[in-house]
Design a protein around this nucleic acid. Structure first.
Length: 212
DNA sequence: TGCCAGGCCCTCTTTAGGGCCTT
């Protein structure tokens, strides 16, 4: 972890997170979990139980051979899923019940994270470590509804709003780009509140009453 | 060898279908 100023909004720290996984289905496993908050960063890898789907290997560069994880043919150090999740919860606790922010996180990252937390009986601990979750995909769609953007993919938003290309599909690079993107979007506290959800309520359409 | 998910949103809709978004 690195230390520096922590991004804040309404007195809450903001943590930007992203998962790389074995694919896109509900049965997929986490391969990489990365997060940033200001200058603090978190980045750990897991050897997945399920095989990497071809499309996932193509876009992420991850491969598994003989229970070892490789990224673009270079072996990476890994931890158990429990070690990764417990460390992530400790990272969140260090930041003082932050808001956890991801792109399309309500439909992709958070359900997979919840599934992993449930498997290891860590969901309650995670929930108590955060203030809530926010998905920047619907947030960006609402903020930029008059900008006639053709795509709200994170990679495209970063290109359009920040004028930069970056190494998409590396979780740490993705969260750094998302943090920069969020600072440009500048959502109001009211807008953030309306887009907040928790792991328990993410399947509901209704916003979660939140205190910012 | 080839295929592989799923929920939201929009519209050429609502008795539906296709594109988007994540890996």
């Amino acid at each position: 972890m690195q230390s520096a100023d922590v991004a804040e909004e309404g007195g809450r720290s903001l943590v930007f997170f992203d998962l790389e996984t074995t694919g896109l289905g509900q049965s997929c496993d986490i391969v990489q979990l990365a997060a940033v908050s200001g200058g603090h960063s978190f980045n750990l890898y897991v050897v997945p139980h399920s095989p990497m789907q071809r499309g996932a290997t193509k876009v992420t560069g991850f491969r598994v051979r003989r229970q070892r994880l490789y990224l673009h043919h270079q072996r990476v150090l890994t931890n158990s899923l429990r070690e990764v999740l417990v460390s992530f919860i400790a990272f969140l606790q260090m930041l003082g019940r932050p808001l956890v922010i991801g792109h399309n996180s309500r439909r992709f990252d958070c359900p997979l994270l919840a599934q992993a937390l449930d498997k290891l009986d860590l969901r309650a601990e995670f929930e108590s470590a955060i203030s809530g979750c926010v998905d920047t995909l619907p947030l960006a769609r609402e903020i930029l509804k008059d900008h006639c953007l053709q795509s709200f993919r994170q990679e495209n938003l970063v290109k359009e709003l920040l004028g930069m290309n970056y190494k998409a599909h590396d979780a740490l690079e993705d969260v750094r780009a998302l943090q920069a993107l969020y600072s440009v979007l500048q959502p109001t506290p009211e807008l953030v509140r309306r887009h907040m959800f928790t792991l328990d309520t993410m399947e509901n359409k209704d916003p979660v009453p939140a205190v910012l």
